[in-house]
């Protein structure tokens, strides 16, 4: 392995780890103001919204309908109360169908 590549990987590892580690360790045992606590508890749901849209619509370049079909499948299956694994597998099956049959 070249020295440059080794340095690159170590450097990337460090700058990836720091943002993941600092808040979890520095904030341990610290009671934040109530408003901040509430905002932090809101983040998982907000981040899920941002992670899903618009990414889910753009999974196939140049074929928006593929994304729309996948979105519809995922939301429909999840709506029935199926567990996450079923939502994942079901959406894959629906899109395989889309590609092979339609």
């Amino acid at each position: 392995m070249s020295m440059a590549m080794f340095i690159l990987i170590i450097g990337m590892a460090i700058v990836t780890y720091i943002p993941r580690m600092l808040p979890l360790t520095l904030l341990e045992g610290i009671e934040l103001p109530v408003f901040f606590q509430s905002v932090l508890r809101n983040i998982p749901y907000a981040v899920l919204g941002a992670l899903i849209f618009p990414g889910i619509l753009l999974i196939r370049q140049g074929d928006l309908w593929f994304g729309v079909a996948g979105t519809a499948a995922a939301f429909a299956i999840a709506w029935t109360g199926a567990n996450v694994m079923i939502v994942v597998m079901g959406s894959i099956v629906v899109l395989s169908f889309y590609l092979l049959v339609l």
Binding site: I56, A74, V88
Partner: peptide, 10 residues
């Protein structure tokens, strides 16, 4: 993405 939807839905 389907996993994110499945996690969010409940």
């Amino acid at each position: 993405y389907a996993m994110f939807v499945g996690l969010l839905m409940p």
